[in-house]
Computed example of a mutant assay.
Amino acid sequence: MTTKNTAGWVRSWGASPQSAHDGIGSLEGYPPLADVTLRQVVRLSGGGSRVRVRLTNEFGTAPLTVGAARVGLALPGGGVRPGSERVLTFAGAPGATVPVGAPLLSDPVDLPVPALAKLSVSLHVPGRVETCTCHDPALETGWTIPGDAVAAPALPEGALVLPVRALISAVDVLPDVPAGAVVVVGDSRTDGAGSTPDTNHSWPELLAARLVERGMANSYVSNQGISGNRMLHDGIGVGALARFDRDVLATPGLGRVVLSVGGNDLLISAVPHDGPLADFLKMFPGDPVTTDDVIAGHLQLVARARDRGVLVYATTIAPFEGADLYTPEGEDARRTVNEWIRTSGAFDAVLDFDAVWRDPAHPGRIRDDLHAGDHLHGNDAGYRALADSVDLSLFA
């Protein structure tokens, strides 16, 4: 099987959209988004000569009006590099209305961007956003500014930090050479929970940097992790099986898929739902699932990806002993699924993240120097270890 390279658009950055009500609650208590400019920064994985931005109202309850929008190369602290500013249009108009439940692609703009560049995206929202489609949390600082400030070269006074990715879900670029997208679908460990904000230290972002450093800049990486996500049930974000077409298979330039899901399904199914974590577990509806269910889910994702003619890789599920959700039953399930991932031959390659993170003296635990203090998520060093463990020849 060969991957698809394309001379057309390729996704260079992505963040899976979700409802503000189905996240970790970062917008609770935040001022309403009404007559404000959202200025957000994204780090591209690959470069090109043209850029387009994908807006999202996919979880909105009313049409979303965008009055004006601009992009440019970001400067630290919310500024935009002089000379790089470009006005975004939509079917030639300076603004647009995004229907309920829909995304909206901007018109392309000529803007040379190098690999790993940080792009500033500014949107003026003149009305009130009743239900914000977002990605929670952001892990890269953005801001809301009163009024229409899309043309402001520096961050004006009165800006508030925006704790989510709001109303944008992707940036596509037109590469100078044929390139393909690597899409990673996963949960909080893919999303980068536990890493230092504003450093781009999720393992998919670190993998993108490794590829560029090794001269393999024709493989772009899109991180489609959602913190708290599961494969088989909705809850915190739509389940991976349900969002796979939108977040993965519809990706421009798709060439490879990395599956890093199923761990939360196993953990949450094994925890008693009438115990001390009962209130927390209300965010995770649905009947318990078995190891066979998670294996079947992987096989479904593989089959759907291969219908697109792309390579499919999988990661093993890293340890979690010591975390609040740990149970011996969940650990047994994790090991069973990992053994299947390693030995089944269902995937074109396996990234053994369990082997990278586990403590040799306590194989059910993450090494103390690699987790964020919760025995569940990586720290910067932990995510670096995952990215460094990946065989880059898989992306050649």
Rank of each mutant, 00 (worst) to 15 (best):
A193E: 13
V10P: 02
V310L: 02
A159C: 12
S222C: 09
V100E: 08
L249N: 06
D292C: 02
L376H: 03
L33M: 07
E331Q: 15
L104S: 12
G79R: 13
F244G: 01
A15S: 13
G253I: 02
R384P: 06
S195N: 12
R52N: 03
G309D: 01
A333Y: 01
S227R: 11
N200K: 02
L394A: 03
D307P: 07
F320G: 00
S49G: 14
L394D: 00
V171R: 00
V36A: 13
V109R: 06
S106C: 01
S45M: 00
I295Q: 08
L370P: 02
S393A: 14
S26M: 13
N338Y: 05
P99S: 09
V42T: 07
H375E: 10
P76I: 10
A74G: 07
P31E: 13
V125C: 08
G194Q: 03
N5E: 14
V164L: 02
F320I: 07
G186P: 03
V258I: 13
D136V: 00
I341P: 02
T141W: 11
Y220T: 08
I168H: 06
W203P: 01
P272K: 12
H21Q: 15
L123D: 00
A242N: 14
I341Q: 03
R365W: 11
A62Q: 14
G101E: 05
R43F: 06
G255D: 10
S84W: 06
D136H: 04
R256S: 10
L267M: 15
D279C: 08
G235W: 06
L241H: 11
L64H: 03
G378A: 06
A296V: 01
A15G: 10
V161N: 15
A115M: 03
V294M: 01
T196M: 02
H273F: 15
L116G: 12
A208H: 03
A69E: 01
V100K: 09
D274T: 14
V350S: 10
D265M: 07
F59L: 03
G263Q: 08
I366L: 14
A305Y: 01
D374R: 07
